[in-house]
Each structure stands twice: as C-alpha cells, then as structure tokens.
Design a protein around this nucleic acid. Structure first.
Lengths: 342, 342
DNA sequence: TAGTTTTGTGTAATCGATTACATTAATTTT
DNA sequence: AAAATTAATGTAATCGATTACACAAAACTA
C-alpha cells in the first residue's frame, strides 16, 4: 500500500535537492546543522528507510556474505553458521546460506549465484566431491571476492582457511585409547580425499606408530557417516579372528553404530572394547554410556572465520593476505573409553 | 583484478546499444536471431555475468527472502531452514538468515534490516519475548512484503502460518501414557504465552480430562528447555508425597533431564515411571533407552512454509490471502514409555 | 574595497540493468 | 509506386542512492 519514501520525496517536501538530503542523512559536515536537523526530522516523520539495494549498486558493497555448506541440518555446520552470523551481525553483514548436498554441480551453481548477487565474500566448507574443481574457486578470486574455507578446505594459493587440527585430535584420541591399555585399535575412516578425514587417519596412524604398536591397515575401514554403516562395519570387525579391542571413529554417528553393535554382541564397553568418536555431537554427552569424542568448537570456528573475513575486507585491495588459522581440538573423555583405575 | 563486464561493454564491442544487448540476452523476439546469437556468443566470450543487484533495483525484486529464527543451532530450526532453502532454490531465491536469540530488540532490528535490504518476503518464528510487539509485523505488511510465520506464530490478520497441531501432539502423547496405565501424569511445560507451549499444555490437560483422570495443576511446572532444568524440576516432583507415575515434557531436553533424575533415584523406566518428550530431537532415537517423542517434521514444515510464500508471491497484489497450514504431529513411541505387554 | 576563502547547495554523472517510446529500414499491400 | 505494416534497433528515462565538480553568497583578508 504505502509508497516507498525516497530521498527525492524528502527533497521535494523541503524544496531542496536529493543530493543535499543524501549528504544531510550521512551527516556530511558541509551541510549546515539546521538543514541536517530538518532533513533528519522530515525523514523520521515521513518514515524514510534507506534502500540498501541502491546503496549496494552504487557503492559496490552489498553487505551480504555467502556461506556454503554441504548441509544445514547438522549440528556442526549449524553451529559454525551461528558463529558466523553472530560475529558479522555487528558489522551489518547479512548471511546468505547455500547447501551443496555434496553435489558438485550445486556447488558450482551456488558459487555463481552468489557472485552474481554481488556478495562481499564467500565463506565455505567444500563438498565431498569438489576435490579438484578449482575452476569455480579461481573465478571467485579473479573477481577479488574474499574466499575463506572453514573445516573442509581445498588447498588454493591466496585463500585463507580456518580449520581444526584434525591430526592432533585424532592423535590424542588414539593415544588416550592406548593409555587405557588398548593394543589393537580399529579406525572407522571416511573418504580420505577430503583433508579432514585424511588427517584424522594420519593422526591415528602416527599415534599407533609412536607407541610401538603394530599398525594394521586391514582394520582401517572407510564408512559413510551414519549409524547403520557404523554397525555394519563394526559387525565385520567383531567377526574377525583377531577382533580389535578399541575403535576410533572419525564420526560420532559411526561410533554410535559401533557401540550398538558391540553391545549386541554381548561385549562390554569400555571393559572389552573402548570406543571414541569425533565431533562431539550433542548426543555423545546425553547417552547413558556417554561417548568419548573430539570437540571441534564449531561456534569458535564460525566466529574465527568471520573475523578473518572482516580482516581481509579491511586490507588494501592490493595486498593478498593468506591466513591459516588452526584451532585446537579438545578431547572429551567419557565413559565409552574410560576404564576404571586398575 | 579483472574488470566487471557489463552490457555496455558488450554493446561497445559490437557497436550496438546496451538496450539491444539487454533485449538480446533476454531473448526478446523483437531482436533478430542473428543479433541474439552474436550477443550471446560475445557475452560468453567476454565472460559476462548479469549483476543481480542492478536487476533487483530496477525490478523491485531482490530474489532474497529473510528467515528469522530464535537460534540457528537447534536441530529443529536448522531442519526447517534446510527445508526452506531446498524448496526455494529451484525458484532462484536466496535465503538470508537472522537470529533473534530471544531478544526483542534484535528481532525488531532484524526485521528492519531485512526490509531495508528489500527482501521479497520474511519467513519467521517469533521469539519468546515478542508477544505483542505487533508494530514491526505491521510495518512488514504495510510494505506489502509477504510475511509467513512457522511454528511459533503471532496471531495477526492477513498473515499466513505453517504450524503443527501442538494440541493434538500433546493429546496423543498423553493418551498414550494413559493407555500404558499411568494415572498421575506430570507435565514439564514452558512459557505459555507462546502459543505452542500453551497448546501442548491444553492438549495434555484435555487428554487427562477426557480419560476421567484427576487433573492436578500442581504437577504442571514451567521449565526452561534444557537438561538441567528437567533434572531439577523432576527432583522436586519425585520428592512429593504423591509423586507422578509419568512425565510428559514439552521438550526433549527436559525429558532427558527427567530420565536422568529418575534413574538417579533408583526408579525404573518405563516400569515405575513413563516419560515422553516433544520434538523428536535426534538424540531421543539414539539413547540406549530411546525416548518417546512427538515428531514435528521440521523439514516438511520448512518446505511448506516456502510453498506458501511462493503461492503468495504469485497472487495479484490486491488479493490478501491468509493461509493457515497445520501439519499433523507424529507420536513416536519408544522404550521410555512402552511397558511390556501385560 | 577588491580579492580570497569558506560555507552550503545545486547540477549532473554514475552504479548496471530494463523498457516505453521513438525511429529507420525493409517488406507488404493496394 | 505510394501507403501501410512490420521488423530491428536506438534514445532516454527509471530504479534510489552517492559524489565530483560547479557555483553563489557570505565571511574574511589585506
């Protein structure tokens, strides 16, 4: 119903030009105090609201950033996004969210759409399948749009990243299992073309080697991150002639599956088999048998990602900065791996 | 680095005007096939990308919708947002997310910011504290921006809503507890100024009255939706002279707290006390003692909300439609309330 | 008092698209 | 062959802001 009020309407009302109105609203000292006050009052009275679209077109700053994640309804990504939103909100930035659903074409499509929408930056976690599709990323950089990876990164020159030390997290978790007396630790892995899963695998492996235990590649198995796959693979592990006495999983969901299967086999946790997961999903804490896991502080990761973006925005355009922030994981030891004192 | 290519650049390259380029790119039949092809080829060669900001300013359509929720890192809201995104993506709409953190001022601020950013619609779940701050909502409507509430709604004329039947969900859950033989059912409620909590309370009450059981207001207690509050309140309930034999909670988190406290008291679930929650949070399914809960199909709710928005957008502006979609809740019965057959 | 500086506004271009309204050239009609 | 259509493109306004440059009036300088 109500027509939109523009600075031209205010100008007409006061018999001045839109330029003066614009300056007055921006508190330009060249405009007399009297006029400034008059304009401010009239704007308020007419219920004027600045059209950010026009401003964005003129200034080249949309005050929108794009955030791309594989999926939204995961505690981890939702928390990261919360962190991003809360950190950017005070600066007046809005967050546009996109999901790739681990689909390469969707990822490309989303990047293009965000660029066309003139976002001021793109913060993303790459999808499972985007390994070596650097073309889109190059397009972002060529447009001089800040690009920052969080958690799942691709290694590209000039791109800042915010990650956690997955190697370290896996190393500590495995060391902890070893400290509990476990000698044959299986690993439920995931697609190791993704750096985070490769690093978790490497951290696990290093911990075993550093402890003088035998490393057995045959009990490292790739799983999809869900309960069912965790059960299925654990079943096959338990049926081995030489079953493991601990399971370190790169996902809490597969760890949960493992726990269910181990119990179904009549074995006791942690007495017979210890289990540790990764991500510190909310449910790991809630279980009656709480699950040991590695916390990734997603909220912090989101805030840090946003901070790196803000820094980047404020630099001279000529300077190419590349910041690699690595957060420390926190091992949360719970009942699923903590044996009674002996 | 690379300058942005506009239709003017293409025009100059081909010695035609920008108007012709614009028409050609939009496949206007008035432009000869030859020219259209030529423009398309040149645009591709020069790597032209349409500036959606300019388009938005000219057309008045930004193809952005704002989604406002109390918080992002809750499974429920994250799933709703996923549903919204997946439904709107095919139409070319982008989703801008905002959190109110149950802060009235933030809610108002977010609404204003979205309106100034010229979003094409606002889809929101009101915050705990926004009861009767209809002023902002009116501002949205006055600007003719479609406003749709999901889950937590305010009752405003001309606003479409997508909710679940909370009364029904609570009614069924309570009836189920009664069917298990429970005679004294406590209710962990929440701020009943919020319609969803009021309705859950009313559904619970009605089920008790319909079953000829005694309704006792003293065992209806308001709780904050977290585990600690659930424990605290359950403790006080168990210490009553006449403790309940079942707890129906309006939140899964308080239900979990209740379960922990009941176990701590040495009582058995479901034999001594049955427990049911609300929301079907992922962890309710994962627990060793899985928790009975009411599913709200958040993904569906998100998709439905988006569909209502699309419908609204496509109507003539003159027509004020008001659509009230009510989804059916699904009672998921699990071990926390299912007694063995007697 | 003539010249210079300052103060406050206006003029018009710009951001990058779309589109109503000409206008010219080509084709068809009579 | 003149008149009427049609086809293809150009001109210029528009969306709603910002801002470099211009300019008049007032204030200051010498």
């Amino acid at each position: 119903m109500s027509k939109k009020i523009t600075i031209y309407d205010i100008a007409k009302e006061l018999n001045i030009t839109a330029a003066t109105v614009s300056r007055a609203l921006n508190n330009n000292p060249k405009i007399s105090k009297v006029t400034r006050q008059l304009v401010a009052d009239t704007a308020a009275k007419m219920n004027y609201k600045q059209n950010k679209l026009a401003l964005a077109l003129k200034s080249g700053k949309s005050y929108n950033v794009g955030v791309i994640v594989p999926r939204l309804d995961s505690n981890f990504f939702a928390s990261v996004i919360r962190g991003i939103e809360e950190e950017l909100h005070p600066y007046g930035y809005h967050v546009i969210i996109c999901q790739t659903r681990d689909d390469k074409n969707l990822e490309i499509e989303n990047i293009d759409a965000l660029l066309n929408a003139q976002v001021d930056g793109i913060l993303m976690s790459i999808s499972n399948v985007s390994t070596e599709q650097n073309e889109s990323f190059e397009r972002i950089l060529k447009k001089n749009v800040p690009l920052i990876f969080f958690d799942r990164k691709a290694n590209i020159d000039g791109v800042s990243t915010v990650t956690i030390n997955d190697f370290q997290g896996a190393y500590e978790a495995t060391k902890h299992l070893i400290a509990q007396g476990c000698k044959r630790i299986a690993h439920l892995s995931n697609n190791r073309l993704i750096e985070i899963f490769r690093d978790r695998y490497l951290g696990y492996k290093q911990a075993i080697l550093d402890s003088g235990l035998e490393f057995d590649e045959s009990i490292v198995i790739e799983a999809i991150s869900n309960v069912e796959d965790g059960r299925k693979i654990t079943k096959s592990l338990l049926e081995l002639d030489n079953p493991p006495d601990a399971i370190f999983s790169s996902s809490d969901f597969t760890a949960l599956g493992a726990i269910q299967e181990i119990k179904a086999h009549g074995l006791k946790i942690p007495e017979d088999i210890c289990v540790a997961g990764f991500a510190n999903e909310p449910f790991t804490k809630f279980m009656e048998l709480a699950i040991t896991s590695v916390d990734q502080s997603p909220l912090e990761m989101g805030k840090m990602t946003a901070k790196v973006f803000i820094e980047q925005i404020n630099k001279k355009e000529i300077v190419k900065i590349e910041k690699k922030v690595v957060l420390n994981p926190k091992l949360i030891i719970r009942e699923s791996s903590l044996k009674k004192q002996h």
